[in-house]
Amino acid sequence: MTLDRSVLAFAGIMVLLSVVLTIWVSPLFVWLTVFVGLNLVQSAFTGFCPAAAVFKMLGVKPGRAF
């Protein structure tokens, strides 16, 4: 899996997890959804994504998705 796809998959999993936690644990987990959304917006404008940096350290290679 490429770096881009790994970041997208991680963001999707975090959003779904935060929705599940909001419904079944506490409504305050909605802030996790807000944090993930804000992080996606800031990375679109700045080009810096903390999750991508972590995945690079873990050895995920950037490359073509096809």
Rank of each mutant, 00 (worst) to 15 (best):
P50W: 00
P62R: 11
T46Q: 03
V54C: 11
S43K: 09
P27Q: 00
V54F: 09
P50T: 00
T22G: 03
T22V: 03
T46Y: 05
G37M: 11
V30W: 06
T22S: 08
F66W: 12
V30Q: 03
S43Q: 13
L38R: 01
G12W: 10
G12E: 14
G63W: 01
V30N: 01
A65R: 08
V60Y: 02
V36N: 05
V20D: 12
T46R: 02
L8Q: 15
F10D: 09
F29A: 05
M14G: 02
T22Y: 01
Q42V: 10
F10L: 12
V15Q: 06
I13M: 10
A11Q: 11
I13A: 15
Q42Y: 10
F66G: 13
A11C: 15
D4I: 03
M1N: 03
W24N: 01
I23L: 15
T33N: 11
F35T: 08
T46C: 07
A51C: 04
K56F: 01
G47D: 12
G59I: 09
W24D: 04
G59R: 12
A9I: 11
G63K: 06
F29Q: 05
L21A: 08
S18R: 09
I13G: 08
S43T: 14
S43R: 14
I13W: 11
L28I: 03
F29N: 02
C49Q: 05
G47T: 08
V7W: 02
M14N: 09
V30T: 02
A52Y: 06
D4N: 14
L3T: 03
A9Y: 06
T2P: 06
L38I: 11
N39I: 09
T22M: 07
L28Q: 01
G63A: 05
L8H: 05
T33D: 07
A51I: 07
G12V: 12
C49D: 12
G59S: 06
P50D: 00
L16W: 12
Q42P: 05
A65G: 02
R64H: 05
R5L: 11
G12F: 12
G12P: 13
N39L: 11
L21T: 03
V20T: 15
G63C: 01
T46D: 09
V19N: 06
W31I: 07
S6R: 01
M57H: 10
T33V: 10
T22E: 06
T2L: 00
V54S: 09
V19F: 10
N39V: 11
F55K: 02
V54T: 10
M57T: 05
G63D: 00
F29D: 03
A9V: 09
L40R: 14
I13T: 11
M14T: 05
M14I: 08
L32I: 14
V30M: 01
V15K: 07
R64E: 13
K56D: 01
F55S: 02
